[in-house]
């Protein structure tokens, strides 16, 4: 039974691709709008061979990675501050709670007004999306740090600084990691919005250009590339997280 499950699991994607090829070539559907995987593969190959793919990948990766790192760093720093100090929380939490529910994509128009089509605007969107998720999970994590650990550390003469850097931060780490993982998918959502709003390179930008030229194969190839990027990022992070919070 278990072996059958594994076999079927391994066939899942190949079966889908074969079915797609057959249907697309059968003439039931319009092959221009719904090209078979072989055509998509050729389009992707062309994309890679022209060298444009790597420029696009680089541009998108740069936006997602930089935005994620900056947003996460800000989120963790402010989350520790609001989680630990009631006064800072009173000052900032109400503001963050008003801004947080606004979908980051809704900021695209104003970001274009502010930054035009510059890289800064795109980074701003990704940072904005990542920040609130990481801030909230850090804030909650810091507040949920086992009081017993804090008291034990106090009894051992742990100074305030070490308490914050070591006990509170590591105590909150399991929560922070969950927030960071959610933020990875958010950083890709916001990347899509940022590049659709107008760019000069990038995976999503390329999808949009291909759509305008009715190169459906390339559109699909772009989607696949985006999915693969997001998937790899999530898996990489999961592997890192497992090593970071290994004591759980």
């Amino acid at each position: 039974m278990k072996r059958l499950n594994i076999l079927v699991g391994a066939l899942s994607i190949p079966l889908f691709v074969v079915a797609w090829e057959v249907i697309a070539r059968s003439g039931i559907v319009n092959a221009v709008l719904f090209p078979p995987p072989s055509v998509v593969a050729v389009a992707v190959l062309e994309w890679v061979r022209s060298g444009q793919f790597f420029l696009d990948l680089g541009a998108s990766l740069y936006r997602v990675v930089t935005g994620f790192v900056v947003g996460a760093a800000l989120g963790i720093a402010l989350g520790v501050l609001t989680g630990q100090f009631a006064l800072v929380s009173s000052l900032l939490s109400p503001l963050f709670h008003i801004l947080r529910p606004i979908p980051p994509i809704a900021f695209v128009p104003i970001v274009i007004l502010w930054f035009g089509l510059s890289e800064t605007g795109k980074l701003f969107l990704v940072v904005w999306g990542v920040f609130f998720t990481v801030w909230l999970s850090t804030h909650i994590g810091v507040q949920k740090v086992d009081r017993g650990l804090i008291r034990a550390a106090q009894m051992l003469g742990t100074p305030r600084r070490q308490m914050l850097q070591e006990i509170v931060l590591l105590g909150a780490l399991p929560y922070i990691v969950v927030g960071l993982r959610t933020a990875i998918s958010i950083s890709f959502y916001t990347l899509v919005a940022a590049e659709l709003a107008g760019a000069f390179a990038g995976i999503v930008y390329r999808i949009e250009i291909a759509q305008q030229n009715l190169q459906t194969g390339q559109v699909m190839g772009g989607l696949a590339a985006l999915g693969l990027m997001s998937f790899v990022a999530d898996r990489l992070f999961a592997a890192v997280a497992e090593r970071t919070v290994w004591w759980r």
Binding site: A152, L156, G157, W247
Partner: peptide
């Protein structure tokens, strides 16, 4: 007035640092 290193404490739960 506040915890001092010359006074040690063992709680009902060990509260060891898990990391």
């Amino acid at each position: 007035q506040r915890p001092r290193p010359d006074v040690g404490m063992v709680f009902q739960q060990p509260h060891l640092f898990p990391w």
